[in-house]
Amino acid sequence: MKKVLLLLANGFEAVEASVFTDVIGWNKLEGDGTTDLITVGLRDKIKCTWNFTVIPEMHISEANIDDFDALAIPGGYEEAGFYEEAYSEDFLNLIREFDRAEKIIASICVAALPIGKSGVLVGRNATTYNLGNGKRQKQLSEFGANVLGHEPIVVDKNIITSYNPSTAFDVAFKLLEMLTSKENCSNVKKLMGF
């Protein structure tokens, strides 16, 4: 069984988390049956950007990366407190551990920023939120990443980054493909109506 750890920071965007739960869940029940997903956070209850509350299955202190094959991180809003937890040492250390073990790290939109802040994107290709004044892509560049600003999804070795919420399903499908196979991913996409 390939296990995905869904890392949630307070202020995450629910739609960006739900694509991971749905794609991995569809594969578990309708695809090749080889994937599972566990949610993890820094608190007992996590409030997303738009006031939706989630109870993670595990506290970050209990997460053992040896038990997981991939890390998935949805982005969030600064105004909802996303960066307070996403930039915490516990959050950043977990990212570093997954990268050191060369395990897949899949992120959507501004979730690339804590990956960048962790230091694992120095000299590597990545992208992040691309609209507005370019502030987020500039921040990612300041963390040492080579920002490919016009690419919707960038894969550099084990790390997947994307440039806004519209890419969410594509990132989740790319994660599934990397965990299983292109054929299996195509089958799950078809079953989900894509």
Rank of each mutant, 00 (worst) to 15 (best):
M1N: 12
V4Y: 14
L5A: 13
E13M: 13
E16A: 09
E16K: 10
S18K: 04
D22H: 02
W26C: 08
W26R: 12
E30I: 12
T34V: 09
D36E: 09
I38Q: 14
L42R: 03
D44F: 01
D44G: 14
D44Y: 00
I46H: 03
W50C: 11
W50I: 11
F52G: 06
T53I: 14
I60T: 03
S61K: 15
A63M: 03
N64W: 04
N64E: 11
D69P: 07
I73H: 15
G75T: 04
G76Y: 10
Y77M: 15
Y77L: 15
E78D: 15
G81R: 07
E85V: 04
Y87K: 08
D90R: 11
F91V: 09
L92H: 03
L92S: 06
E97I: 06
E102P: 00
K103C: 09
I104K: 02
I105A: 02
I105F: 04
V110R: 02
L113E: 10
K117L: 06
K117C: 06
S118I: 02
G119P: 03
G119V: 07
V122N: 10
V122Q: 09
V122D: 06
N125A: 14
Y129F: 15
N130G: 12
N130W: 08
L131D: 09
G132D: 08
K135C: 09
Q137L: 10
K138C: 01
Q139F: 11
L140E: 07
E142V: 05
E142T: 07
F143S: 01
G144S: 07
G149P: 03
E151F: 07
D170T: 00
V171E: 10
A172K: 04
F173P: 10
K174Q: 15
M178I: 08
L179V: 02
S181L: 07
S186R: 04
K189S: 07
